[in-house]
Design a protein around this nucleic acid. Structure first.
Length: 417
RNA sequence: GCGGCUGUAGCUCAGCAGGUAGAGUGCCAGAUUGUGGCUCUGGUUGUCGCGGGUUCGAGCCCCGUCAGUCGCCCCA
């Protein structure tokens, strides 16, 4: 048997309803906030990602699906959207005509990782980006949008963590201090963290190793290294979230994995997910546009893992899905000679807006009645020789079991809902 | 890339000192002539993940491999 590729999933007919309803929520909420959808190709020149995400992140080092195409060009299946979106915004000069460019996206992404709960090689993200404002109110707008979306998706048990990475100078100052501290305690750190200390010391902060945690506990905090600008930015974010009554927790150890973040960073967490407890996250990335060859353009955004969202929904409301009827009217056809009439009638009903099926197995009446019941149809129409002679059919209400004969000419006047 | 656990009918699972598979569910049909849901009866389904090895004989033991799952790394 040929199987799907490791870490990929079929979305089966039974599950598609969940996806559609989430997609509807994405559409509704983004419209309310004035965001427009942007779709980009699912692959890009490799440098789009390697120049933006960070050369020493795992995403770039070992997780990208990269290959050389027949023209000799290195291309990569997108591992995330922000870099691709920024590329498109620069290329199409989208910032030219608006003061604030508000964009959202939804689609598949690819990372070559070991699959586990809430982690796939092809997964889906929803995200939104607010481009051109350097001010904290745009950070808040993005967080509010994300929060609204989570609530509309029916999730109530989650936590919002926020932190700031400060501006460049604050962060540089802090990084130096942190590096000094960690270096002096280097012997107590795990091998992983010793390596991180060389490549990206900030990421030592979210190590899961118990030993590391002891060291980290008394490490210097970014919050003590903020200059006025950075502090003010963060204060506004906090007070606006308070005003909006969005609960959050400040986590000075929250560091996002991608190199391009500055100032506000945040993460949505849920207990329903196991080891990968974050189902959404984002932050400000003022430097990314210039890194990708555009003009200096401040921006902030977030992304959400749709499969993780679905895991939480399943977990919190397992019986929430109500079985809906697949069919309004099932056509029970007594014999093959009447199939022509059955098809004519079903087409008429469909053009009146009713979902209608005929049996495709030439089965007995009893079998067709069973089928009607299984499909949860409220009505069936029985087409038999006797009725047809009178230019009529029988309508049976499956709930009350009552049935009436009606002239075919009048069928279009009947309501089946 | 690393580690633990798992892999038997469409689905959920049983199978045990190693002797070439079973239950429930589903599906199909029937319980008198053109009528569903409940009930009853009968039927149906498997390269026991794949490949190799040990053995007279393996779903059960060994090795490899693939996949799933949980965790590490990292992230959504």
């Amino acid at each position: 048997m040929i199987q799907n590729i490791r870490g990929t999933k079929d979305i089966l007919p039974d599950q598609i309803g969940q996806w559609h309803s989430l997609e509807r929520i994405f559409n509704e909420v983004t419209t309310l906030y004035g965001y427009k959808e942007l779709r980009t190709p699912i692959f890009e020149k490799t440098e789009v990602f390697s120049r933006s995400i960070g050369d020493n992140t795992d995403i770039v080092n070992k997780e990208m699906y990269t290959f050389i195409d027949k023209g000799g060009e290195s291309v990569t299946l997108r591992p995330e959207m922000t870099a691709a979106l920024v590329r498109s915004v620069i290329q199409n000069s989208l910032t030219q005509e608006v003061s604030a460019l508000r964009l959202w996206y939804f689609g598949p992404f690819f990372r070559y990782e070991r699959p586990q709960k809430g982690r796939l090689r092809q997964f889906h993200q929803f995200g939104a980006e607010c481009i051109r404002s350097p001010y904290p109110e745009s950070d808040v707008e993005i967080i509010l949008l994300a929060n609204q979306l989570i609530r509309k998706a029916g999730i109530s048990d989650y936590q919002l963590n926020i932190n700031t990475l400060g501006n460049d100078s604050s962060r540089t100052l802090y990084k130096d201090e942190l590096t000094k501290y960690l270096t002096s305690n280097k012997e107590q750190l795990s091998e992983d963290s010793k390596f991180r200390l060389e490549t990206n010391p900030l990421r030592v902060l979210d190590s899961k190793s118990e030993n590391d945690k002891l060291v980290i506990e008394s490490a210097p905090s970014i919050l003590d290294f903020l200059d006025d600008e950075s502090r003010n930015h963060f204060d506004v974010v906090k007070s606006m979230l308070d005003d909006a009554k969005v609960p959050y927790k400040i986590d000075p150890k929250l560091v996002r994995g991608l190199d391009y973040y500055c100032h506000t960073v945040f993460e949505f967490k849920s207990g329903a997910l196991g080891a990968q407890d974050a189902f959404g996250g984002g932050g400000r990335y003022d430097g990314l546009f210039s890194q990708l060859g555009g003009k200096l353009t401040p921006a902030v955004g977030f992304a959400m893992g749709v499969e993780r969202l679905l895991l939480i929904i399943e977990n919190s409301a397992p019986e929430q899905v109500i079985k809906q009827s697949d069919c309004d009217v099932f056509i029970v056809c007594m014999n093959e000679n009447l199939l022509k009439d059955a098809f004519k009638i079903s087409e008429m009903l469909r053009s009146n807006g009713y979902s209608t099926f005929c049996d495709l197995h030439r089965r007995s009446m009893k079998a067709q009645m069973r089928e009607t019941n299984k499909l949860n149809a409220k009505h069936c129409i029985i087409i038999g020789e006797d009725e047809i002679k009178r230019n009529a059919v029988t309508i049976k209400n499956m709930i009350t079991s009552k049935q009436v004969e009606i002239k075919i000419d009048l069928l279009h006047t009947i309501s089946f809902s």
